[in-house]
Write a protein that binds this DNA or RNA. Structure first.
Lengths: 157, 157
DNA sequence: GTTCCTTATATAAGTTGCTTATGCAGATGC
DNA sequence: GCATCTGCATAAGCAACTTATATAAGGAAC
């Protein structure tokens, strides 16, 4: 508690408020009608592949916090459904690069469309005075996500 | 990085950006070391009970988007672990009200503490110019969560 | 290049958490 | 008072995870 902090105490309170607000928000945001019998983790993998390009199985396992065999099994299933492809990694012949297919990308984009529709309905009920600060916070929120990835990189080394 | 001039329909673009930003944010936010063999849905139920008070099994099932037997089984397990209690509903003797115990609440608060620690580390790396807009957006974000609950109420009737 | 350790993936077997189907008891409507 | 609905429990099956282990390629050391 007496550890030196780069921020005065008021910031601490705000972080706590940010946390609980985001806990609520996250729960609302995740809750979506189940799509095509795909599990939560599966959808997250598709999202990762769509957003960050082809990945190794081990990278996916680490990112999703599940075991490597779980990813192997999931990718096998997704492959049979035509949502991803396994391709050899030219730089390492033990490894596999999982690529998303157009059909897989369509699922990710469909879900995003659902969320956009949902948020459009909600934000449409905000006054301009409420809406403006959310838009203003977007770059900083993206920066937080970026910092999180950096932090994880640092911890891995 | 060059933003177009603010136009009347600029909100549409912002909602899409908000959606993708929150998709990323959500994935970062959820990823937490596994606590005490409790599943994602289980933790969500504990969070609901801690935040909104005692609930019926059917209400929990609806809120978590899982089947009623799934909640019955989960609550039975949580009861044996001392994290929740089943009490009769005085207004309906078929029904059960699930109450969270102090031990259950401790788990929810522990996870919040972990998230606060994580976000404290991240936000500590932000400049004050980046941090301020996030704090400024908090009331509006809470308002969005509130609107979501209203909307769900309306749809239920 | 041979040996040894590490890394990337696959397979096997078991466990857990969900599902649908069904039953029962109390509430509700006429 | 009877029929129907609602809230919960139980049973059986399935899907998605787990740990343990196997296989094969990469990399370092000598």
């Amino acid at each position: 508690m007496t550890e030196p902090r780069p921020r005065p105490q008021a910031g601490e309170v705000s972080v706590a408020e940010l946390t609980s607000t985001l806990e609520e928000f996250t729960r609302m945001f995740i809750r979506l009608p189940k799509v095509q019998r795909l599990s939560f983790t599966t959808l997250s993998v598709l999202h990762t592949l769509a957003g960050r390009g082809p990945q190794r199985l081990t990278a996916l396992a680490a990112g999703e916090q599940v075991s490597q065999p779980a990813i192997t099994q999931m990718v096998t299933k997704l492959q049979h459904e035509g949502l991803v492809e396994r391709r050899p990694d030219p730089s390492d012949s033990r490894a596999v690069l999982v690529h998303i297919t157009p059909a897989g990308r369509a699922i990710v984009e469909g879900r995003r469309a659902d969320r956009i529709a949902h948020l459009t309905e909600l934000t449409g009920r905000l006054t301009p005075e409420e809406w403006a600060p959310i838009v203003a916070a977007l770059p900083a929120l993206r920066r937080l996500v970026e910092l999180d990835r950096q932090l994880e990189q640092e911890k891995r080394s």
